[in-house]
Computed example of a mutant assay.
Amino acid sequence: MTQVLPPATYFEPGWFDREQLELFGRTWRYAGATGDFEKPGSYRSVQVGRHPLVVVRGHDGELRAFHNVCRHRGTAVLPGDGKVTKHIVCPYHNWTYGLDGCLLAVPQRREVDPDLDRAKLGLHPAAVALWRGLVFVHPDPDPEPLADWLGDLTERVAPYDPERLAEIVPAQRYDLRCNWKVFMENALDNYHLGYVHKDSLIGYDHKRQEQHPCGRRHWFFYEPPLKPGRLTPTDLETGLKPVAEEPRWYGSAFGLVFPNLFVLTSAVGWSSIEVLPTGPETTTIEIRVRALPGQTTRMALGLIKATAKRVLRRQPALDLIQEDVYCCEAVQVGIRSPRFSVGPIAYRYERGIQAFQRNVLDYVPLEA
């Protein structure tokens, strides 16, 4: 059997809802970079499955995560991203919390409950952890430690320090008309690289690629340049200085942090690519790119363009249907056909897809 997930799991609203609760609500989720929380009071709100969470930098410098749910009527206390000066004030009834989540004040307290115990009504805690300057959150306040969750993926990804790099252009977002898993599987499908991307990825040696399962859930991919020890044309066109100190990383590599984050490295940059399910058949991709500091925005935009080619295979000059986007959206149409099926796979190049599908089923079993 080559296709583990039934077609309906790619478009049924009921399955999408189960994924939000049973998969995304039970795994670590990327919440931004440490640079997003530079000053006390800096915060980002993040939807983790059905759990609205918020990450806040405290006055003591510590990062903390909470369920973004006021203890009075459930209002999101900190919608969006931004900075608060001293306290967290619910916009509905002005219940006030400290940056440590403790309930500090209740307006008209006697009207609400003269014997109210503020110590029992702080914001519900969630877990927060860091890896290489990336911030992760989990709805459970005491989950499996992030380091254990990542396993040996941390040893395979290029040894760059993202905190030493600069993010000098805004995040780039792309909307796709396909289920999030279709995009994930496309990114794990290395059979198509020499065909769909024969021009945009011309500088890479597809036949010498490496793939490795990491930990229990994750995946690592590396593809060297055609000319060993040389920058690829894709990296040369950016004009950026190499981040890599070893020619080993003069190629394209990514680590999949299950279920929906890719960490992509090239010789000249580090990128995070988050795949955000927005509906049963819609997905948003957010790309954030870092390069050595002190370089121009024009160069950074060149890296964005090169990154998009590797991740979305985007052709900015056309601004029409991109290579991978076209394939993903075409697959989404085919999946709805009563005649849909998946034939024999290219085991060496597509085995990551089956591993990904089995991981999804471990959280969202078919028999439920």
Rank of each mutant, 00 (worst) to 15 (best):
residue 122 G to F: 01
residue 188 L to F: 00
residue 81 D to T: 14
residue 368 A to Y: 04
residue 13 P to F: 06
residue 219 W to A: 08
residue 25 G to S: 05
residue 60 D to T: 03
residue 330 A to D: 10
residue 357 Q to V: 04
residue 326 Y to A: 15
residue 16 F to S: 06
residue 21 L to N: 06
residue 17 D to N: 10
residue 23 L to S: 02
residue 234 T to P: 00
residue 270 W to H: 07
residue 178 C to S: 05
residue 177 R to H: 13
residue 143 P to D: 03
residue 257 V to R: 00
residue 197 H to Q: 11
residue 164 R to H: 09
residue 185 E to R: 10
residue 300 A to M: 15
residue 162 P to G: 01
residue 274 E to T: 13
residue 74 G to W: 09
residue 56 V to S: 04
residue 191 Y to S: 12
residue 15 W to D: 06
residue 2 T to S: 14
residue 324 D to C: 05
residue 283 T to E: 00
residue 317 A to E: 14
residue 195 Y to S: 13
residue 259 P to F: 08
residue 31 A to C: 02
residue 311 V to K: 01
residue 132 R to P: 01
residue 223 E to Y: 02
residue 364 V to N: 02
residue 165 L to W: 06
residue 225 P to W: 05
residue 127 A to C: 04
residue 237 E to A: 15
residue 341 S to C: 11
residue 149 W to A: 06
residue 98 G to N: 02
residue 60 D to I: 02
residue 45 S to H: 10
residue 131 W to C: 04
residue 241 K to N: 09
residue 339 R to Y: 13
residue 355 A to C: 02
residue 85 T to H: 11
residue 342 V to K: 09
residue 67 H to E: 13
residue 324 D to R: 02
residue 244 A to Y: 06
residue 333 V to Q: 13
residue 288 R to M: 03
residue 200 S to P: 03
residue 84 V to K: 05
residue 266 S to C: 07
residue 140 D to P: 07
residue 202 I to Y: 12
residue 345 I to L: 14
residue 43 Y to F: 15
residue 290 R to C: 00
residue 113 D to L: 06
residue 152 D to E: 12
residue 103 L to D: 04
residue 5 L to R: 00
residue 189 D to K: 09
residue 243 V to F: 07
residue 205 D to G: 03
residue 124 H to C: 12
residue 204 Y to S: 01
residue 157 V to T: 13
residue 32 G to R: 02
residue 108 Q to S: 12
residue 85 T to I: 10
